[in-house]
């Protein structure tokens, strides 16, 4: 994007004969591009360059990382958490998205309920889960009272607590794109399918689900990439071994070992980019969006 715009901005002489109509959109996006470049891309690049340039040009940090057993464990744990959370938000979020997509008069209310967590800080929500999931917390007390348990389960300070809390925090990111994709599906398609002999499950499986895939993919992508960077929630509700990549990065930042922190950040960023690229390839996010836009 920047390449397309820079010449127009830097060489006004050459653009003098250019059609103004073509130039205007470029000029309109230019401030945003410059803003992103100056305030986002450049600082990120500067930060990442520390992984290669500190103290002198070197690959030593990457070599250290490759042989760092702690890093391997944490990276695996982070990826696993991300997978579980993504699957959890998908399974729980899809039905909610369907409800949201079908709602008419209840829509504003449902939207507020779905978005409510957005207005509460991650910190407060994580503390709320501490209170709920504890051995004497609401969940355990309720299960005990119903006779489903005879002694309290340990949920808090385990990976399960991390998964529950993260799924809760990230659910809106899964629900909203799916609901949006579902809303864009022509309702007569489901009718047509039923009229052609498809039962409710077949309609869902063969029509609704495939047509909502652009939203599902967008949701998965969002949740996956966001959960890669989670830090506060695992720190608060996780168990002794629930360390995430972000926690490791924060540790190194606090230790003022910014070169290694930058190396870890580069790995985190690369992981996110690889995932996005895989999605682009495997599911053709672009074509899918075109399809749903019909």
């Amino acid at each position: 994007m920047s390449e397309a715009i820079a010449p127009a901005l830097l060489a006004p002489g050459r653009t003098a004969g250019m059609n103004w109509r073509r130039l205007v959109p470029l000029l309109l996006v230019a401030p945003l591009v410059l803003f992103m470049l100056a305030l986002y891309a450049l600082p990120v690049l500067a930060m990442l360059s520390r992984s290669l340039l500190e103290p002198a040009p070197t690959l030593a940090h990457y070599a250290e990382l490759a042989g760092d057993e702690v890093f391997h464990r944490i990276f695996t744990n982070t990826l696993w958490t991300t997978l579980v959370v993504t699957a959890g938000t998908l399974v729980l979020g899809y039905p909610v998205a369907m409800g949201l997509a079908r709602a008419r008069t209840l829509l504003p209310l449902l939207l507020i309920i779905v978005l409510l967590p957005f207005w509460t800080s991650v910190l407060v929500r994580s503390y709320a889960w501490m209170v709920l999931l504890g051995r004497h917390g609401l969940v355990n007390e309720a299960l005990l009272a119903m006779g489903m348990l005879d002694r309290p389960l340990r949920i808090l300070n385990t990976p399960l607590a991390v998964h529950i809390a993260m799924v809760h925090i990230l659910l809106p990111y899964m629900i909203l794109p799916i609901a949006n994709a579902l809303r864009q599906i022509d309702p007569s398609l489901a009718r047509a399918a039923a009229g052609l002999g498809a039962g409710p499950w077949a309609v869902f499986r063969q029509v609704t689900l495939p047509l909502s895939m652009p939203g599902v993919m967008a949701g998965i992508l969002l949740v996956f990439v966001l959960s890669l960077g989670f830090y506060i929630t695992p720190a608060l509700v996780g168990g002794p071994r629930d360390m995430t990549l972000s926690m490791l990065i924060a540790q190194r930042v606090e230790q003022l070992d910014w070169a290694y922190a930058a190396t870890l950040s580069a790995v985190l960023l690369a992981t996110a980019l690889v995932i996005i690229a895989i999605f682009q390839r495997a599911f053709g996010v672009g074509t899918a969006f075109r399809m749903s836009a019909r």
Binding site: Y127, M130, V131, G134, R135, G137, N157, A235, L236, P240
Partner: peptide
Amino acid sequence: IKRDVVKWWETGAVPVQLLTDRE
């Protein structure tokens, strides 16, 4: 003591919360 430490806390509110909740 490793097996008995359920939480290696990193923020001051956490141990207080854990004590309060009998965790």
